[in-house]
Design a protein around this nucleic acid. Structure first.
Length: 556
RNA sequence: GGGCCCGUGGCUUAGUCAGGAUAUAGCACCGGCCUUCUAAGCCGGUGGUCGAGGGUUCAAAUCCCUCCGGGUCCGCCA
């Protein structure tokens, strides 16, 4: 709805510029809700050409703007041209939200998206840093689907590198702890194997031998690798499931082994392959100073080459190819992008996120220094239970457990989403367990309140939207109207934190409305209108929460 | 050493890509509001030279340069 208003403003301004005889230019539109619904600073842009005061230009333009459609009013304050939405905009918003219901927020987008996220090495459990990837990725998946895309999520499984060979070697020499979740048991073995190898570097030869046997096609060895990877992945998917995250496809890295010869042949056409036993590629024309090794001198493949083959395969199967990667992959992604460019394959769109470290330093699976996602989830849900039990002790145990889980998981997801992805974070237990205001519980609480009102009303007949004339009501409707524009922004720029902020602002506006505008006790006609508004807010909030992967609880 | 990212009130943080009217919100701190739809809520207050210094511009948290502090990458690892 907001996007329509915006294009109407653009059209009206364009017309006015023409009738004034001004050249078309940047309309410099911006949203500053304190002043107007949309503001144009076009006067500043034209001033150098017309050699007149911006305020004077703005005044002249406004005299030729004809408010129509959703534009209710135009005013000029100094150089600022302020546009205000009219009643029709508010009424239409309510109508559209209620009509589209679960679909409201779609942007008319279409096409297929392959979205790769998480893709952590199966050498241990997901830790809190991996989860930042998963939650961003999953929120993108939900938002893209809501926008209208057909999305396939993929987990790219490293099932053949040195780290996995170490896991396999570790499992051959150490007992797996049966009592532990499989990914945690894998980490134990992996940490021990690393320690062993550090103590006796000759053991590394055995690990290398495993890698070479795998790549040469030794079936017995391949089975060992497969079992080890599958074993750990089971634990990882359990954790993801707890977070409400599933992948459509698990793509195993080794599947691309067969593509590598063809890939290298094709790159030879560009005559940038050098051969000194190994094969590497000079990417200096892309501003990348380090040569990229495509094949080791012993003939085995490297991760980068397989990754390129993987991207070539994906690119042919979708309209948009999106990767969620840790910031440490930036150089690698640049290299992959450069080679794809040589192959005339479109590069992926990449969402980079910065690391989460511990107060004592960075995390490391290899050294066993990490806080696992499982551990965080258990403690957060436990804390949510305590908090909830204090507030609603009379509910059944099952209800308490279920709501505590929704709140705990939601809080964890929201904490990872609310901060811009390129901000480094430091994990802190007291912070993680503190359900600070305006985190996920704040949003869920607002939703529960709206739901609570709706439960107490039957289907109310027609409503008169004109009765929703209070500032609290108008503000709420305007925020609801912006939802599709937010989804548009999230799916185009791939920035999930704007959705998190949006949901917070909507909840805040609803809580204000809730405090000052009684619904159930209002006189019948007003009551009908407010119930419609509450239904509208509840719909938008529920859709937004669902994109964030936060369960919209019915009561709390 | 070079590349990339971050640096906004005591703490966490929005806004930076697409420069514009009083810099966003939370936590903490101080003070109000539950015979009225769930107070995990609402309202008010204290607190900021937007890391530092230059520059561009009518206008800079936002763009450019230099420097400082923190992170990260620079493997025939993945």
């Amino acid at each position: 709805m907001f996007l329509m208003f915006r294009s109407q403003v653009e059209a009206a301004l364009g017309d006015a510029l023409r009738t004034c005889g001004y050249p078309p230019t940047d309309l410099a539109l911006e949203v500053k809700s304190d002043y107007a619904d949309l503001t144009s600073l076009v006067g500043f842009k034209l001033a150098p050409f017309l050699k007149r005061e911006p305020a004077h230009i703005a005044q002249t333009i406004v005299e030729h703007v004809h408010p129509q459609g959703f534009i209710g009013r135009v005013e000029v304050i100094g150089p600022y041209i302020n546009f205000f939405v009219g009643e029709a905009y508010l009424h239409e918003t309510l109508r559209v939200v209620l009509e589209q219901n679960y679909r409201y927020g779609h942007t008319g987008a279409s096409g297929t998206v392959i979205l790769e996220h998480t893709s952590a090495n199966p050498n241990g459990p997901l830790h809190i840093g991996h989860i930042r990837n998963s939650v961003i990725g999953d929120t993108l998946r939900r938002s893209l689907q809501h926008a209208g895309y057909d999305v396939e999520t993929q987990y790219y499984v490293n099932n053949m590198g040195r780290q996995i060979a170490l896991v396999v070697w570790g499992m051959m020499h150490h007992e797996l702890d049966e009592r532990k979740k499989s990914d945690h048991a894998t980490a134990d073995v992996y940490v021990q194997a690393n320690a062993d190898v550090e103590l006796q570097p000759t053991k590394l030869l055995e690990v290398r031998h495993l890698m070479r046997s795998f790549e040469r096609g030794d079936e017995d060895i391949a089975r060992l690798f497969e079992d080890a990877v599958q074993f750990c992945i089971c634990g990882i998917t359990d954790t993801l499931k707890e977070l409400g995250i599933t992948h459509d496809v698990f793509v195993w890295e080794s599947e691309f082994l067969d593509d590598i010869d063809g890939l290298i042949d094709e790159l030879k056409r560009y005559e940038i392959i050098e051969n000194d036993g190994s094969i590497h590629i000079d990417l200096s024309s892309f501003g990348i100073t380090n040569n990229l090794v495509m094949r080791r001198s012993d003939g085995t493949s490297v991760y980068a080459t397989r990754d390129i083959a993987y991207h070539v395969w994906k690119a042919g199967r979708c309209h948009r190819m999106i990767d969620v990667l840790g910031a440490d992959h930036k150089l690698n992604a640049l290299q992959v992008g450069a080679v794809l460019d040589l192959l005339a394959v479109k590069p992926p769109e990449i969402v980079f996120f910065e690391f989460i470290s511990l107060p004592e330093g960075s995390m490391s699976t290899r050294r066993g220094h990490f806080v696992s996602a499982d551990e965080v989830l258990v403690r957060v849900v436990e804390k949510a239970y305590e908090e909830f039990d204090k507030r609603r002790p009379k509910l059944s145990e099952a209800e308490k457990r279920s709501i505590a889980k929704a709140v705990g998981i939601g809080a964890t997801r929201y904490d990872l989403l609310r901060v811009s992805a390129d901000k480094p974070m430091v994990f802190d237990w007291t912070e993680a367990l503190d359900f600070e205001r305006q985190g996920a519980p704040f949003l869920q609480y607002a939703h529960a309140r709206a739901r609570n009102i709706l439960i107490k009303t039957s289907m109310e007949g027609d409503y008169d939207p004109a009765l929703l004339s209070d500032d609290y009501e108008r503000k709420l409707i305007k925020i609801c109207a912006a939802f599709p524009a937010v989804i548009d922004e999230v799916t185009l720029n791939l920035r999930v934190n704007v959705l998190a902020t949006y949901a917070r602002e909507l909840s805040e506006a609803f809580n204000q409305f809730y405090r000052y505008m009684p619904v159930l006790s209002a006189e019948p006609s007003v009551r009908r209108a407010r119930v419609a508004l509450v239904r509208c807010v509840r719909t938008v909030l529920r859709n937004a929460l669902s994109c964030l992967g936060i369960e919209p609880v019915e009561s709390m």
